[in-house]
Amino acid sequence: MPAKVKNNSLVKLKRIAQYLNECELERKEAEQIVKTYPEITVDNAYLIQKELVKLKISRGNKLIGYKLAFTTRTKQRSMGISTVGFGYLFDYMKIDDGGDLNLNEVIHPKAEAEIAFVIGEDLEGDVSPYEVIEATKYVAPAIEFVDSRYKDFKFELIDVIADNFSASRFAIGADVKRPSEVDLRLSGVIFERNGLPEKTGALGAVLGNPAIAVSQLVKFLSRKGEKVKAGSVVLTGSITEAIDVHEGDFIRVSICGVGEVSTFVVRK
């Protein structure tokens, strides 16, 4: 954790962003922000996230989309909010369908089963879920490997926002479908490790329909003066509980009526 800086809030936020970025790049566990800086607000945390994004762009990373969190009403209600949380996805986080998650590049990853929306037209303003579906080019099964930089995955809201919602790696399936061809509420999801169905779910686990989560993202971004650009990938949130991964694991997500995506967990 960087030394405490007083009287200059932006410098403080930038330093925290630098610290979290270093932890990611050097694969070392971070101390919780809230422990050192209890005064940081949710808005400040999103500013730290923004500084983190700037750092990555300055290093040549390309912004390619978003990942969503707090995608159940129970969770949103318990936190007193009515919107998803989000982090940014970068090109270096992408793993090909059938490719490898290299454990030497991450700290302590967990896998999540999700459906990805690939957006076909710019989305901004007060959009409704049906408008999201109209603007979505296709949907695809996805595996997200989250990797909180915090020690033992222990964090509070402020910490996880600042840490870009644990975004780390993700794989999008080559099996894609137009969203209108998919039952976005009731399609079954099977999350396998080495052929065993570790977890199952249905797409409606995400706010009843993942398109609702995307519409909440667009509204949230609009309030910050941002939009979801055509070509963006949106990982719409975990459909089941996360699973731990170990070297040698073969992870597969099947979404019925959409297709599959898989990743090998290796150390190389």
């Binding site: 159940t72 009403r73 129970t74 209600r77 039952d183 509420r185 009731l186 399609s187 079954g188 999801v189 099977i190 199952t200 779910g201 249905a202 797409l203 409606g204 686990a205 706010l207 009843g208 459909i239 089941t240 099947s254 019925c256 009526g257």
Partner: peptide, 17 residues
């Protein structure tokens, strides 16, 4: 493959297949 959602008072609380 059949998906299942269980709602409590209108909120999806668990799902499965």
């Amino acid at each position: 493959c059949l998906g299942m959602i269980l709602e409590r008072n209108g909120d999806v609380v668990v799902s499965g297949a």
